[in-house]
Nucleic acid binder design. Structure first.
Lengths: 355, 355
DNA sequence: CACGGGTATGTTAGCGGTAACACTCGTCAG
DNA sequence: CTGACGAGTGTTACCGCTAACATACCCGTG
């Protein structure tokens, strides 16, 4: 009778019985304890194999006080950036033998971030990575009094939370300098939402580069990262006199902008040069192929796990720490020489054919 | 002395002491057990609040044999489809009070899928969602002897694993019929990799629709989902006599194809109509805005969790079950009337200007 | 007024591991 | 020859929770 029941999966005691040792010895083998005779170890291993034994996760976690699980809080994991970062995080964590538990936020509010962290804490995660690029969530993090190791991706400016981020400022500067080298008088900017730290960094880099070159700084247009907002920005920009170069804060908006330019018969790069940011896989096939700033999201993910694990495993609070991953320019067809005939001080309607 | 130590987080016994009850009563309150006096409940709740008590996840999991954690195995979570599906899964799971642990595969092999499932099993997940659109992984699933509740997204054809998927066949049919309605003689196809079930479904739907309409079925070109492969396919197609309409198996490849057409001065939709699949956010801003088949990934995620939770919570094996989520056509500018002058049996070089 | 039966609560025994300590041997120094 | 010591192994005590059973008390009833 009892043999027909859906037998419970074997436990350590079963292995011990089969191998003719105590359960503690089994535990020793599993934990690579040195004081186990080779022959005994073999016997235990054989028993484990025969029974298909697997250590019970919960029991182990209960006594060791470690779940070997990392929590990730992220904003909209559908976006290329967060998705790629999480991919890197997951790969690195798994390589180190950690599980990754994810909470994906619809909206990015301080309360939402805190709630998510609370949820993960309830699961007993050993540490948390917050991919929270908004300033509000950075503030939430700063206010966090958890003693749980935490690392922020893009946004740990305030507070003692260590942070890993791509060098937005320098990336933006590269974009602008690239355009200036082509002889453009100045570079316009379509930025991301103002409360995003990444948007802020790119804006700052753009300003710095223009300032350093002594160029006029046009009023930036604020988008929301979506292709649509880039499209709208494009239509606004078309009417700007003297426009020959635009630095768009992400590739998706750049796509929208290119579309708007196409509708208004502005040719890129002959009349206006465009540079994006992110280097999404599609960028190479935009009309025209987009010059953009490449971000190594995988590296960001890896580095953040590296820091987090170091803190978890050493119990070290390590203080504030900031890792900056460089960004690099990928030159493609959307940027080129400034048009020879500048329409510098021309009136509203320039030589371009506009509808 | 002892008060200066980093005090261990409070346990049930601490709450019990503070509330002047036994730890079991605390447990009863936490588990909404009916037999607790209202006043006692209040007192316990107050104590919990005061101490900031949180139930220990591992201890609870150990005794209930449930981790309230769901495992997700997915191929390349960087892609829009998987990322969106996982987003839906995560939202639905969290709403039901479950954690979501993710393993993201670099390559999709049967061994990889099994290893990932093993990894998650080691964490003690209560159930698994496999977002594994390749045929090889579907086979791996079928061979799986785990007694863990499992549900497949796109791909549980073989074996008793329940599956949730978008109606690829019907989606493809809609794409083709849409094109045929515009008077196109036939529709070419750029398919996905042959071992992907989604690619297979779209191919089948395309064939069926053409067969039903009594149209010739051109040789499909096989891509790998990437924009580049679409680009290459585009260059191949340009030389096909009689080409007026193409159904591309995903939007990314469609982008590449549009690029190739642009380089060869083929205008879309005037000379050739193009329809994609997926409806990625960028599609609306492609040159020209892409007519495509919209997939409700969120719904797929939600439905798969629904099935999984039902099986977990009822212990019900439920047998084979298949949920099909409809796909819908989104008509945009890339598709339109077939050109009046058919270049039906024309020689290699047609009236088009080709470089 | 003794008694059955429900309600509110307490007590006890695990869940399946790991850590600490105890024990049994050889081996070797004094 | 004996005691110290370390290697190999076993025994026991938890980790923090829930389930099962035990207990105390209240009520209505014959």
């Amino acid at each position: 009778m009892s043999s027909s029941e859906p037998r419970r999966s074997p436990v350590m005691a079963d292995v011990a019985r089969l191998a003719g040792v105590s359960h503690q010895t089994v535990s020793r083998v599993l934990n690579d304890h040195p004081n186990v005779r080779g022959e005994t170890r073999e016997r235990v291993l054989a028993a484990i194999d025969e029974l298909g034994y697997r250590r019970n996760f919960a029991a182990r976690a209960l006594v060791t006080r470690q779940t070997r699980t990392l929590g990730v809080v992220s904003f909209d994991t559908t976006l290329y950036g967060p998705a790629s970062t999480i991919y890197g995080i997951e790969q690195a964590a798994r390589a180190a033998g950690y599980f990754v538990s994810i909470v994906s936020l619809k909206t990015l509010t301080a309360a939402g971030v805190l709630e998510a962290i609370g949820f993960l804490t309830g699961q007993g995660v050993d540490g948390i990575v917050v991919v929270a690029p908004q300033r509000s969530s950075a503030r939430a993090l700063a206010a966090l009094t958890t003693n749980l190791p935490t690392v922020a991706v893009e946004g740990g400016r305030a507070g003692g939370v260590p942070a890993v981020s791509v060098d937005q400022v320098n990336g933006a500067r590269q974009a602008v300098e690239h355009l200036l080298e082509f002889g453009h008088e100045t570079v316009w900017h379509v930025s991301g939402p103002s409360d995003w730290l990444e948007a802020e960094g790119r804006l700052k880099g753009w300003r710095k580069a223009l300032t350093a070159a002594g160029r006029p700084i046009p009023e930036p247009i604020v988008g929301d990262w979506s292709p649509r907002s880039g499209y709208e920005a494009g239509h606004l920009l078309v009417d700007q006199p003297g426009l020959t170069a635009v630095f768009v804060a992400n590739d998706q908006m750049a796509l929208g902008l290119l579309r708007a330019f196409a509708e208004r018969r502005i040719s890129v790069p002959e009349e206006v040069s465009v540079v994006g940011f992110d280097d999404i896989p599609e960028a190479e096939f935009f009309p025209p192929p987009l010059t953009t700033i490449h971000q190594d999201f995988g590296e960001v993910g890896r580095r953040s796990i590296e820091i987090l694990l170091r803190r978890i495993e050493s119990g070290d609070d390590g203080g504030y720490e900031r890792v900056v991953v460089p960004a690099s320019l990928v030159a493609r067809a959307s940027s080129g020489q400034a048009p020879r005939r500048r329409t510098k001080a021309a009136p509203r309607s320039t030589g371009r054919r506009s509808a």
